[in-house]
Simulated assay, not measured.
Amino acid sequence: MDQIRPFPPQDLLDKAEEDEAIRLAPAPDLMNWVITNFLTVGGPLHNPDHDHIAELLHDNEEFVGVIKRWGADESVKRLIEVAKQAPFVSDVNISKCCGTCLIS
C-alpha cells in the first residue's frame, strides 16, 4: 500500500498563506489510490462491506461481477426495474426537452 495518501496540488497549498484562504481540490491521484487500496479485492485496506462503492466507480463489466458475487441490493433492484420500463421521453421528443419535468 502506498503509505502516503495523495495530496492536493502543491501550488494550491502554497497559495493558501498568500491568499489567506485555503483552496480545495482533490489530489490528482486520489481516485486511483482509493480504488487500489480500498476497493480492489486483495487491496491492503479492502473491506467487502465497501464493495457497493465499487458499483459506482467501476465499469459495467465490473458492476455485473459485483452483482453476481454479492447480489443486488434495493437500489440495484430499483435500477433494474427502471431500466425495464419504456423511457418517459420518446426518441421523437428528446431534442425538445431533457425529460426531468416528466419524472414525478
Rank of each mutant, 00 (worst) to 15 (best):
V92L: 10
P48A: 10
P44M: 05
V66L: 15
L39R: 00
R78H: 07
S95L: 11
E61S: 13
T100S: 10
L13W: 01
L57I: 15
L45G: 01
K84R: 15
P6K: 02
R5Y: 04
N60Y: 10
A27K: 03
V76G: 01
G99Q: 05
A54I: 00
G65C: 04
R5L: 03
R78D: 05
S90A: 10
V82L: 12
I67H: 01
L12Q: 04
M31I: 13
A83K: 09
R23V: 11
S104A: 08
H52N: 10
V76Y: 01
R5W: 05
V66I: 15
V92T: 12
L12R: 03
L56F: 08
A72Q: 08
P48R: 07
K96M: 12
S95T: 10
F88P: 04
G71M: 04
E62Y: 08
P28M: 10
V64R: 08
E74S: 14
S104V: 05
L102P: 01
R23S: 15
L13Q: 09
V82C: 00
T40Y: 00
P44K: 10
F88S: 13
P28S: 11
T100Y: 10
G43I: 05
P8G: 07
G99A: 08
R23N: 11
A83G: 08
T100L: 13
L79K: 03
E62N: 07
N32E: 14
I80R: 08
A83M: 09
G42P: 04
M1G: 15
V64D: 08
D91K: 12
V92A: 14
V34N: 01
R5T: 05
K96E: 13
E55C: 09
G71H: 05
T100R: 11
D59E: 13
K77E: 15
F7Y: 04
E81R: 15
G43F: 03
V89W: 02
D2W: 01
N60W: 08
R78E: 08
D51S: 14
E55F: 04
G65S: 12
L12T: 02
K84S: 08
V41C: 00
S104C: 06
A72W: 02
A25Q: 12
D59G: 14
S104K: 14
P6F: 06
E55W: 03
E61W: 03
D14C: 00
N47S: 12
L39F: 02
P6V: 08
C98W: 01
P9L: 13
H58S: 12
L12N: 03
E62I: 09
C98K: 07
I35L: 09
D2S: 14
P8M: 12
A25V: 07
L12G: 01
W70A: 06
D91H: 05
I4F: 05
R69W: 00
D91N: 10
D73W: 06
Q85P: 00
E55M: 14
A86W: 00
I94Q: 12
